[in-house]
Design a protein around this nucleic acid. Structure first.
Length: 553
RNA sequence: GCGCCCGUAGCUCAAUCGGAUAGAGCAACGGCCUUCUAAGCCGUAGGUUACUGGUUCGAUUCCAGUCGGGCGUACCA
């Protein structure tokens, strides 16, 4: 609908030989009296045309009237808005479209032919996923969903991890010390080691399997490997509870094993973008738009995180992805420009990389902020949260806010008041419709007609929809494809939640104002069509967010 | 110090490249179930969009400054 107006306005401007402003804005007005779509184009042209906006609007409207089919009325209002009112028939026909397209409704080919890679979580396997990872996980998975809905040819969900760094050495040593401790050896378990109980569990597991035979093993060997395997298994289980499945686990170590890291250094040297100083290797970041040069290989011979990160992103390009999405916590905001500058310097188009930065989650326990630290074991695990609130609530909670919004997660509220959680509002509307459809099957005879599953699908009786609540609802349903597009383009899934709340609200209003199943056969079928279409949209919307749409609650 | 994000109803948050009368949920108060799910609906109350200035037809949105919070500012990731 919006696109239709944009095209019409463009045509009109062309006919009038008016300049076309960079961005013509078409909005859904907040107020009903302002029509279904509103544009500000006339006001944008006042300066260039040196005419009052209302006068410009008049001449545009004149041209618009020539080819208005679904448009009932065009008004000029306020300082110079042009407001479009669509015919009710247009929205009714769309109900039929929704029913016909069913699960395909809202899908588009916006990203046809594009291969996408969405990298998210990417936590090193040193401990269980925390609430903070939860936001990352849900955002990444959902953004991937939207890319799929918008026609991306292939969307790979990817988890990048490092099992070779200092953290992992400390982890191995932690397990080794707990192992010795459990065997009765005196150990000094200082707070530099991982404090979580899960370390003891892994150590106990090793005792069960190997007895005391590992006493003289180095931390780097069996201990580290066992810890990594155990923790990774748990991480994957946690993800599965949220309905998240990865296509690839990409190991940072493989970048070294395959020589890619070395290649990148050499490429930088060839391009004269790397040099040696103080026993370290430096990247001439200052020539790439960064304030100062950065170390990429430390004097110890170990690379800094930048180097493998650049090599990794180079691999993403070389693997043929057109859309590369990184989901990062705000603590990484200083790091990724180096990586972008690096891959750009290697000749890749860094505009294909979209970095989604989300702000931190503050967890409130008993009203007090909990400081998160995996090492200190001072965290709330994602598992605990899923256990308490359920996967749908957890997903919705993380998705109902914009990524750049700081998020307070009140644990007590999440645990105690799940009954009041807004996600139930949406699911309830869906379940209610399912119930109505069941009722039609079981009880239509009592109203003097015989319904069989699917009678409403023809949409022939839609003319019987005349009530305000019916049309209001139909109008909301018509917006769904544009909301999918908005979520895709903005990488901000929360718009879908806001939209679905609006749809559910208008459904509930309709439901309370009018009975669906009555003795009037045609009208009942028309309302069943409206219900069916609403059910499709709510289910689809919840589906994009990875949330279930129950038929019964 | 400098950089990024944020500050909107009592609380948690929306507001689609600057649009017309700033919206939901929760909490509060008052109504609505012998008819398709009351996890719902209707109504009331709640705001100087942190503050001050600026830009213009128009600012929650853009700019400058102030105050407050978060995260960074490494040869940690």
């Amino acid at each position: 609908m919006k696109q239709q107006i944009v095209n019409l306005v463009h045509d009109a401007l062309k006919k009038l030989q008016y300049p076309v402003p960079d961005s013509i804005k078409c909005d859904y007005p907040k107020i009903e009296a302002h029509g279904d779509i509103s544009t500000n184009v006339a006001m944008l042209l006042t300066k260039e045309l040196k005419q009052p906006p209302r006068k410009i609007a008049e001449s545009i409207v004149e041209k618009l009237r020539e080819n208005s089919n679904d448009i009932k009325e065009i008004q000029i209002a306020g300082p110079g808005f042009i407001n479009f009112f669509f015919t009710e028939d247009y929205f009714k026909r769309n109900i039929k479209t929704i029913i016909d397209q069913n699960e395909q409704y809202g899908k588009s080919d916006l990203l046809r032919g594009k291969k996408a890679n969405v990298e998210f979580i990417s936590a090193n396997p040193t401990g269980p996923l925390t609430v903070g990872h939860g936001r990352n996980a849900v955002l990444g998975d959902t953004i991937a969903n939207f890319l799929e809905w918008s026609g991306s040819e292939k969307v790979d969900r990817e988890y990048y991890f490092n099992n070779a760094g200092r953290q992992m050495r400390v982890l191995g040593e932690s397990v080794r010390l707990r192992y010795l401790e459990l065997l009765g050896d005196p150990v000094d378990y200082s707070d530099e080691y991982y404090q979580g109980e899960y370390i003891k569990d892994i150590a106990q597991q090793l005792i069960d399997e190997h007895g005391i035979s590992l006493k003289d093993e180095p931390a780097e060997g069996t201990f580290k490997a066992a810890a990594e395997a155990a923790i990774f298994t748990e991480i994957q289980k946690t993800c599965e509870r949220l309905g998240i499945k990865f296509d690839h686990f990409y190991n940072e170590q493989s970048l070294y094993d395959n020589g890619y890291v070395e290649e990148v250094i050499n490429l930088f040297r060839e391009k004269n973008l790397a040099y040696d100083k103080d026993d370290a290797v430096w990247l001439k970041a200052s020539e790439l738009g960064i304030e100062q040069d950065r170390v990429i290989v430390k004097s110890t011979g170990e690379p800094t995180y930048r180097l493998p990160d650049i090599a990794y992103h180079r691999e993403k390009f070389r693997r043929g992805y057109d859309i590369i999405v990184d989901i990062l916590g705000s603590d990484h905001h200083a790091a990724y420009p180096d990586v972008l500058a690096g891959v750009k310097a290697l000749g890749y188009d860094d505009s294909k990389i979209k970095v989604v930065l989300y702000q931190f989650v503050t967890v409130l326990r008993d009203g007090i902020a909990v400081k998160m630290s995996t090492r200190k074991a001072n965290y709330i695990t994602l598992d605990e949260l899923i256990e308490e609130a359920g996967p749908d609530v957890v997903r919705y909670f993380f998705l109902m806010r914009s990524p750049q919004s700081h998020l307070n997660f009140d644990l007590d509220l999440a645990k105690q008041q799940t009954e009041e959680n807004p996600v139930y509002y949406l699911q309830y509307a869906h379940a209610r419709i399912a119930s109505i459809l069941r009722f039609a099957v079981s009880s239509s005879q009592e109203f003097g007609w015989n319904y069989t599953e699917g009678d409403e699908l023809s949409g022939e009786q839609l003319g019987a929809l005349q009530e305000k609540e019916e049309i209001d609802l139909a109008k909301r349903l018509e917006q769904f494809p544009e909301i999918v597009e908005l979520c895709t383009n903005s990488y901000e899934p929360h718009h879908m939640g806001t939209y679905l709340t609006d749809v559910a609200m208008h459904f509930h209003k309709f439901y309370h104002a009018h009975r669906v199943i009555t003795t009037e056969h045609a009208r009942s079928l028309a309302r069943l069509s409206l219900c069916r279409a609403t059910k499709i949209v709510i289910a689809a919307g919840l589906n994009t967010l990875g949330i279930s749409a129950p038929d019964k609650m």
